[in-house]
Amino acid sequence: MAFREYKIGCWMFGIALSFSMTVTIFLPSIDISSMSSTKEALEKQLTYGWESGFNYYDPFLQGKDKPIKVILNKDPMTGEAIDETAAYVFPAGTHFPNGLTHDNILGDDVQKASVELGKIDQASEEAGAVFLVQTTEDDVPYIENATATRGWQVDAVLNAAEQKIYAGAGKTMFIREGCWWCHTLLPEQTQDWQTFGRPPLVGDFNGESPTTFGSDRKAPDLLHVGSRNSSREWMTMHFFNPRLVQPHSIMPRYDYLWGDKDANGNPIDLEAWDREYLEYAKGNRVYPPEVPEPAPDSEARKLIDFVLNLK
């Protein structure tokens, strides 16, 4: 390339950029895509559904198109007592995560077990389905389509549920409200595990979107927060006004996620609550005003479910 010889320059530029993209996109994607799902990845996919950020089925991030995680203590068909089981209910029309619809997400062994033992190929989005996460004798995790293998129907499972966990819709709230701008979901591989628990491993993310690692940590990591603090009362107070339980917290209040009515159907008056709280903060009251219990269909309930479900 001589002085002002631009044709060769353009070729060199194109070649350099293509090389760069081959090494930084193509080669890593082969390695990353060849990793099998871990059990965590299966649970996450089934909990969070297809997509938690903006998508066609939930354009305003209201927590639509999401599965419901339920805890069962009895068989929904027979009513017999069983060991506590987590089932993932996809009501009719709910979109399945990529792992159920694409062959290359779960990893070879997991995919094989999920089809042969779990019959996931028989599940359909139109009819809805109930899934379980199981492990083979060889320690390979797989997804079981309980609607096909056990005849568990969506309505029966929801009726028999001991507890309903709206963690899927909660993750949508987590993204919409920008929780991940301060709370990461990535304990670091080098130092963090003493405080924040096990760093995620390579197969822990298959099928999850978005992963919302977060990068700018102004608050504790939340990947295992449900193991550190499993108190729903504490979480409820903390979301309503973090200063009630952590006087120095800089977290915003999320009291507006409670909506208009609390769990008992009483209207929520945030301004009145603030006035009473101000009295308390000034020292004119001994106790802060009572935090209303979030209604079962409120956004606060979903977000709290999501956080408590991060084990």
Binding site: Q194, R198, V202
Partner: peptide, 12 residues
Amino acid sequence: VVGPEVIKSNFF
């Protein structure tokens, strides 16, 4: 060794 767990760490 990660906290209370012993985890396989060799993947790549």
